[in-house]
Design a protein around this nucleic acid. Structure first.
Lengths: 92, 92
DNA sequence: CAGCATCCCGAGCGATACTG
DNA sequence: CAGTATCGCTCGGGATGCTG
């Protein structure tokens, strides 16, 4: 799971989101990467995908129980990195 | 920081190590990746490099204070992933 | 709206050989 | 012992266009 995986999971930590929302919220991600990232996360059982049989189509993504557990362990690290990242880049 | 970065840091969490030790302990890493990984970690201020002016050469690598702080935040996640990884791979 | 199919390029990385 | 140099290929990922 790369950078995009983390960013998508981060976007999902505050609840369910639709495809288009993720497309907009995860800054700079292409449709291709969003699609493949979501598929990977889904087959890993970290994210759940629910499509509603409507026109126009609506698909919602959310963290599974495993996903929420993962984010519980990952968030502290992400926040620490975010805190330190500026300094690390500046130092070198 | 990729897979190799994590594995090198993991090897360093139990203290200082020499180049050759890391080469053996980090399973499957090539000399090239070990070198570039260590250089990246060093310029990021996560790992310190100490070379002793001896023959034969001896170079030791260790976590810096920043590195230890990082591992403090990263270890819980790594352990959780290690716990779950088997199940995740098996499930799909 | 929510994707999939193609083409394409450059970074990442492995393998191998050489050096201070 | 502790690296550097070079080659070659795989693959992530961007751009673009098409579909149910």
């Amino acid at each position: 799971m790369s950078k995009w995986g983390v960013l998508v999971l981060l976007a999902l930590t505050d609840g369910t989101h639709r495809w288009g929302e993720l497309r907009r919220e995860v800054d700079g991600i292409s449709e291709k990467m969003l699609a493949s990232t979501l598929r990977t996360l889904e087959t890993d059982g970290i994210v759940s995908r629910t499509s509603y049989p409507e026109v126009p189509p609506r698909v919602e993504y959310a963290l599974t129980e495993l996903g929420r557990e993962l984010m519980e362990h990952m968030l502290p690290l992400v926040q620490w990195v975010a805190l330190r990242a500026d300094g690390i880049v500046r130092e070198r």
